[in-house]
Nucleic acid binder design. Sequence first.
RNA 1: GGGCGGUUACCCAAGUGGCCAAAGGGGGCUGACUGUAAAUCAGCUGGCAUUGCCUUCGGAGGUUCGAAUCCUUCACCGCCCA
Length: 405
Amino acid sequence: MQISLLMQGTEYGDETLKQAMAQELRTRLLEVEQEGRKLRVYCGFDPRTSDLHLGHTVPMRKMRQFQELGHEVTFVIGRFTSLIGDPSDKDSIRAQITLEEATLNAETYAEQAFKILDPNRTRIAYNDTWLSELTFQDLIKLASNFTFQQFLTRDAFRKRWEAEDPIYLHEFFYALMQGYDAYHLKTDVQIGGTDQLFNIVTAARKLMEVLGERPNIAIIHGILPGTDGVVKMSKSLGNHIPLQTDPEDMYGKVMSVPDIAMSSYFRLVTSLTPTEIDEIEGGLESGEFHPRDVKMRLAREIVGIYHGEDVVDKAEAAFRRVFQEREDPEEMPDLLISHGLALVDVMVEAGLTKSKGEARRLIDQRGVRLDGVVIENPEEILELDEPKVLRVGKRRFLRLLPPEE
RNA sequence: GGGCGGUUACCCAAGUGGCCAAAGGGGGCUGACUGUAAAUCAGCUGGCAUUGCCUUCGGAGGUUCGAAUCCUUCACCGCCCA
């Protein structure tokens, strides 16, 4: 009963492993029941940036499922692991962050997570509290359980090895640290994406075993692609949909996701049942549904989760207005300007462009409009006697207000 | 520690004294098309300035009328040897 629900949507890339994990989960459930306790479930999130995005919610939704079944969920904030950066992430090595930065970034992590997790049933833990206590001796002991070759067969490392790109020694610690988290928390279940297979299945399970704990069960989910539809969602790539964005923006960002990624989005970040999703996919395939309408449904679902059903209609209306009917949005920032200012200066001042050169370029490319009229002259001087709407490109808007007389 | 090769713009990568703000690709942006999808096409992609100037080719210093390109030195990376 619980098993099928908990294994729902998992993706191991290996049927044998999946069966093994399902079997272990079954056994473990029975055991904890006899012990009169609940499963201890955890997933770690590294605060390498300050905001969580849709991609983070995939494991969080799975955690929520465990919560609903009464299990104990620990939301680990990887303040210590984020110092290294998971080598599974391509460019995480590049920018090392400090504990101070990680702490700052983590400030609102829990608050953001509670959009998905039940705050009353979530334990928050920071992994620096135990990882920073380890001695060099401890580290040696942990490290001695693994061979260099085991790490090297990992895709992330192997590719770099073959490309003769640097692989830093400390990157190997990441898996050890994550494994130690699982050991320290004595977890029964660890959740993560397919990119965490090595960290969870190889490192954590082995470490727990040699340290005298039962290996935790890996619940592995698929990876949510970003708004480009291909690469894993991440803030540093700029293909993310932040949880803390306004409903209109969230709706629009979902709409910009390529069709091919829709199915992943439905499966990974909405509450639709597998049956409902099958119906949608069938309808798409037969041509019964228009992909755009399906995507609008997707956008409604997602906006509804984070902003509430009551604002969904408004977000959708705003989207239709601006992108389908090509009207100006109802709400946009105002800027009071005085007479005789150069348009390019106003654009830079308002943050619509980074430089005057960029502003001129956009005007040149016919990408700047004032009340719908394309501005032709890069040296345009503004003389307003009534408010006008400045549109830069597809989605940058500003209402210019004339000076008060 | 020794030998060799390398460090170029957001990323990859060409460029070995002036024609280099620096080829090409990716990414991003603008426009056309359109469903803020995909594909395609055209263009843009350091800053300031209306013909010019300033900053940029790992850091610092030097040679030269002139350097991403040559020299010195420092730092970092890879390969091979130990």
